[in-house]
Write a protein that binds this DNA or RNA. Structure first.
Lengths: 212, 212
DNA sequence: ACCATCGTGGTACGTTCGTATCACAACGTT
DNA sequence: AACGTTGTGATACGAACGTACCACGATGGT
């Protein structure tokens, strides 16, 4: 059977077009014709690779979360050079804030999908709700690790802190998105809260570099 | 000039119908015909009292925030009998969580409007972004008041805590909305975080109320 | 070399949406 | 009592949307 084009690649292209145009004009305003135009293909092609709009949206959501997961993972790897779990925690929390265009788009579309999922069983069944759970587990892990290293103030519960910090990150992200708060102020709030979780550095130690 | 019906009351009725049907099926899925049917009037009437759909949405948003503001105020008044500012803080934070149907609808629609506002200047110009600022100021006030009464742990900054708690409330609210978290678990997280802000009660004092 | 299948374009169809138009009943003012 | 304004119904219109249909070039298996 003759197959000349890479279906997966095409679907990826079109999915990225969906994310781009949805980030630019809002998910509610995007139609199949807009996606086709953005991808530089005909409407028929979008129909061909995604039979229905619902499937296109589902694929777009999946691609969005995948790409963002990779982004967060890359940030965590980049923070891996620094000593201590606090850098990890900071990297994780900062990566979720809508600071640049990509994270802004992610935050906006993720929220849009979440709103739709409230009344759309097909979207609600999608495992994109599971992503926050993974982030929460990772964050709790870092905090627990810090606690075992004696880096945390007494009385801190890693699990509750992870939930709270992640929810705070989501809330602050939305505030930034609508222009109520600046990324800098959100960062400052995070620094304050992390200072109330992590024990203060007693000695500007010579042994290891703490921050670059 | 003959005027036989109360325009304001009619607009309120239709606006409430909008909020109801939008809460039931999602804001993206509501059309003028749906609002008309929900309000039990003809499509023409909705057109008559709100010339355009945009104005209807704007009015619905305004009404939504007003009603919710009153709800929060009522909760705060109800908590006024309790001693100490912590009850106030708890009342404020809990009121924002989507626990019952009304607060669920509010949370869902507010988020929907916020998403739309990102690309709709008319919505963004609406002062509904100001409401969180008011809540933040009130919350910071309660915390500052508690601090002056010596009820807070050392090193707590009322302003940063207010921002963080409110963002946390928004984030937890969304989690509850999409079914990721239960209201009870969100409440528990709040209790934990408030325990890390407020000084523990040394003496389970007798029934002496300190503030009215 | 043929042909079934894949990939692609163009376009039409049915629906739904927001809005506009026409008609008319009801009441207050003069 | 007549009239003009107001409130209301029914319906029409144009646009946009998702989807379906039809046609055809290209290509690989046999």
């Amino acid at each position: 059977m003759p197959k000349r084009v890479d279906h997966a690649a095409r679907r990826t292209e079109i999915g990225e077009a969906l994310v781009r145009v949805a980030g630019r004009r809002g998910l509610h305003a995007v139609g199949m014709r807009d996606v086709a135009a953005e991808a530089g293909v005909s409407l028929r092609l979008v129909q061909y690779y995604f039979e229905t709009k619902e499937k296109l949206l589902l694929y777009g959501l999946q691609q969005l979360t995948e790409r963002f997961g990779e982004r967060v993972a890359a940030r965590l790897r980049a923070a891996g050079d620094h000593p201590g779990p606090r850098a990890m925690v900071e990297a994780l929390l900062m990566a979720a804030l809508p600071t640049d265009e990509e994270s802004r788009t992610f935050h906006l579309l993720y929220t849009s999908y979440a709103v739709l999922a409230v009344h759309d069983p097909a979207l609600a069944a999608q495992p994109f709700i599971k992503d926050p759970d993974a982030a929460e587990a990772a964050l709790a892990g870092f905090l627990r690790q810090a606690q075992e290293a004696g880096l945390l103030r007494p009385g801190v519960d890693p699990g509750s802190e992870a939930i709270g910090l992640l929810a705070m990150s989501a809330g602050l992200g939305t505030s930034i998105l609508v222009g109520q708060r600046t990324p800098d102020s959100a960062t400052a709030v995070f620094e304050y809260h992390l200072d109330r979780i992590f024990r203060p550095d007693q000695h500007p130690a010579p042994t290891r570099q703490r921050r670059k």
